[in-house]
Nucleic acid binder design. Sequence first.
DNA 1: GCCGCAATTAACCAACTGGTTAAATACAAA
DNA 2: TTTGTATTTAACCAGTTGGTTAATTGCGGC
Lengths: 118, 118
Amino acid sequence: MSPDRLSKVFSALADPTRREILVRLSTGERSVTELAEPFDMTLPAISKHLRVLEGSGLISRGRDAQWRPCRIQAAPLKEAVDWIGQYRRHWEESLDRLDDYLQQLQAKQRKPAKSHDK
Amino acid sequence: MSPDRLSKVFSALADPTRREILVRLSTGERSVTELAEPFDMTLPAISKHLRVLEGSGLISRGRDAQWRPCRIQAAPLKEAVDWIGQYRRHWEESLDRLDDYLQQLQAKQRKPAKSHDK
DNA sequence: GCCGCAATTAACCAACTGGTTAAATACAAA
DNA sequence: TTTGTATTTAACCAGTTGGTTAATTGCGGC
């Protein structure tokens, strides 16, 4: 998968409206007007968001008479999560370090502490 | 964590230069010029990227004389991964469906198949 | 204090984004 | 064929983004 595809996925996810659309799609297919309903925004705006989502591969669209039902496509999300996953050890390590820090702090509460600001 | 913070993280990750910077930081602290070196881009451009990364909480910066060493902060990555994680079952299901499909396909290779387009 | 290096800020620019309104298209039903 | 509903496209606009060059700041060494 091209690096550019990853950029498209992340930038699609960067908008809260689009994330909310994905959340609503996670419980099943929705038409455009159904998706638009909770937002204080015109239909063309939603249509644009859907085009971005489609362009990133995060949704696909069918046809049912005049409706264009949208469904979520989770594969790109897996790609995104896999990319971020390479840093898993970093946040786990920093949680470890927080743990160490808290333990040190506890130790110091028994003995008088040395300064440690900044 | 505010929803806006998540937007900032995703939009920081949406740029390939910034993702590559994060990759290079994953092996340890780097100064700005060190980070800039592999890119065909001026220093102010890198400086802007770093500001975006810092604004999203993905890096923090120290001070060492005239250097401003950058280090990765993985906590926001965990937030991002946690958000995406709510869709894990979707991509696992679609892999399952792929599996089903392949099994059906295999079954049909023994019997003559019925049409299944659309 | 002055020089040199690291990095940021300022000012600018073209391209992209996220929204709007108005017009066009696609399809079903009457 | 006309009408109504769902959706997209076109044209426009303001704000943001990602880059540039030129100037500025911060700091150590002489």
